[in-house]
Design a protein around this nucleic acid. Sequence first.
DNA 1: CCGAAAACCGAACGATCGTTCGTTCTTGTA
DNA 2: TACAAGAACGAACGATCGTTCGGTTTTCGG
Lengths: 197, 197
Amino acid sequence: MLETNPNPNLDEILIRSARLMAHRGYHGTSMRDLAEVTGRSLSGLYHYFEGKEDLLYLINKQGFTSLLDLAEDLREAGFGPTEMLKGLISRHIGFFVDHLDEMRVMMFGTLELSKDRGREINRLKEVYRQNVQKIVQAYIAEARGSGLSEVELARKTYLLFGMMNWIFGWYSSGAHGTPEDLADDIFRTFTEGCAAG
Amino acid sequence: MLETNPNPNLDEILIRSARLMAHRGYHGTSMRDLAEVTGRSLSGLYHYFEGKEDLLYLINKQGFTSLLDLAEDLREAGFGPTEMLKGLISRHIGFFVDHLDEMRVMMFGTLELSKDRGREINRLKEVYRQNVQKIVQAYIAEARGSGLSEVELARKTYLLFGMMNWIFGWYSSGAHGTPEDLADDIFRTFTEGCAAG
DNA sequence: CCGAAAACCGAACGATCGTTCGTTCTTGTA
DNA sequence: TACAAGAACGAACGATCGTTCGGTTTTCGG
């Protein structure tokens, strides 16, 4: 119960904190706000966290670790390039939609974190980006027959991230289709262009 | 002794403020920070602005108005659907790269603004989005021969915005090609898919 | 050179911030 | 029942926040 099982109270606090921080930003959310929204007193929060920065750090670390696990599971599935790219987009979008608030927080950047913690989160982010880039590289090599330069490949990968991550600002499952519809649309647009469908 | 700007104007203050807000967020940037970076005293800033929110409002209004002007100029050029889409992407990216800090601020949202001002900015944003959507619609109608549903068309437009706007987090002209290269890549990826080039 | 308008400043206000402290409830186990 | 440990609390700390105010300097047409 100490190290093996995550504290359910702690996860609940992180989720509710992310919901608030997603809409007000890190500096715009006070510890008093977080205490109220988690049903605790201000000083009671400090029983679980060393400080406000802890919350931001844990939201980021948990989020990017989950994304990395998703990519790792996918790699072990042994798909071909096309299924791999399709599966990655689907899982990324699925996780995004299920954790919209945490993802919003994760996009505000790491500048509020300490130097060491900021580096740690950025490292996780970069590893995930490289995993995605390898999948994009494999797909393009198959579809195109020849490879892209490093600059072009990185750019294409960033464009894919753009389509996937920009949804934080507009997507609602009611008005813009299911997450599966969205993932399919991104896959087809990225591989065939906007007239595909 | 403060290092004062010899001939300061309002635009200069906005640019320097945006540079700071882009990296620290609205709440993370204090009026004292803004006074220092603009070479003025704290109270001296209030000679130009009614308050902190004024700065955020003016940065947003100026930015979205400029984007709308760009789209308006383009519409008067009388291009066909393909040149129109290409020109829009090129101008949007060009403005983005020239005003990276302001664009970063504009993406943090309008929740810090007053109700009326927030609505005004969101209206500008929505008008610009609809302009872009019309251009996308015209292109797809030509390339595909048939139209898309409203939901699909809006989704495609958001995907294009994703590729264009996500650059705020990664693009540097040194490592990822010129703005023209980037605009070309987005155009080709959006119209033909990632293997185009 | 004058004087009013504009530009600018230091000092301070009340409010809120993150954090800390000493204390009190609650709970599990012996 | 006893009692240590975890959980939660109210109150207060110094720091910083946005803003205001009274006064000083600079600018510039007459």
